[in-house]
Simulated assay, not measured.
Amino acid sequence: MLDTNFDHMVTVKMIKLVYRLELMVITLLAIVMAWYGLAFLEWNTTLGVMTLIATPIVWLFLVLTSRMALEFLVNQFKISEYLRAIKDRI
């Protein structure tokens, strides 16, 4: 954290923690969405069933989007590391 030259990237080391936290938040969101779907079944069956069907689709979409964004971020840092290694060889 005290590296003022930014030679060592913290983001790459923290990305696993960030992904796990995102998975927990997305899963909690899906649980709440499913709970609302069950609650909707009592007064509007169609809305309740649609919500229950949409819950795993939304969960999967959010997990994939999160994973792709984090992979893109890690990829950018790896490109930077590889370019630094090439620069140091020359």
Score class of each variant (00 low, 15 high):
A34T: 14
K13M: 15
I86Q: 06
F77E: 12
L52P: 03
I90D: 09
T45P: 02
L83C: 10
P56N: 01
A85Y: 12
M33H: 12
L52K: 01
V12R: 00
A85D: 14
E81F: 08
E22R: 04
W35Q: 13
T65R: 13
A54V: 06
I86E: 12
F61P: 03
V49A: 11
L2K: 11
M14W: 07
T46Y: 13
L62M: 10
M9S: 12
D7I: 04
F61V: 14
L29P: 02
A69S: 12
T51V: 09
L17M: 06
L73K: 03
T27A: 09
L28C: 12
L70K: 05
D3N: 09
I90M: 09
A34Y: 02
M1R: 05
L47G: 10
I31S: 12
G48T: 01
G48E: 04
V12N: 00
L62N: 08
L52S: 02
W59C: 04
Y19K: 04
I79A: 13
L64M: 15
F40K: 10
L38H: 06
L23I: 03
Y82C: 12
F77Q: 10
M1T: 04
K78M: 11
I15Y: 09
N5Y: 05
L38E: 06
V18L: 01
T45C: 14
L23Q: 01
I15L: 05
W59T: 07
T51E: 04
R89C: 07
K78L: 08
Y82G: 07
R89V: 10
L41H: 02
V32S: 13
L17P: 00
A54S: 12
I57R: 05
A34W: 08
F40E: 07
D88N: 15
V49H: 00
V49D: 04
M14D: 03
E81I: 09
V49P: 01
L73M: 08
L62W: 04
T46W: 11
L2H: 07
L62G: 03
A34K: 05
Y36K: 10
A30Y: 03
D88G: 11
P56W: 02
M68P: 03
T4K: 14
V49L: 14
W59D: 02
Y82P: 05
T55G: 05
M68D: 12
M33K: 03
A54M: 13
M24D: 14
M68S: 09
L73R: 01
I53N: 03
V58A: 04
L70V: 02
E81Y: 06
F77H: 14
N5M: 07
F40V: 01
L73N: 04
N44C: 02
F40G: 00
R89Y: 05
I86S: 09
T65Y: 07
A69T: 11
M68Y: 10
T11N: 14
R67G: 01
E42N: 05
I90P: 01
M1H: 04
P56Y: 04
Y19E: 07
L83M: 06
E71W: 10
I90T: 11
K87D: 14
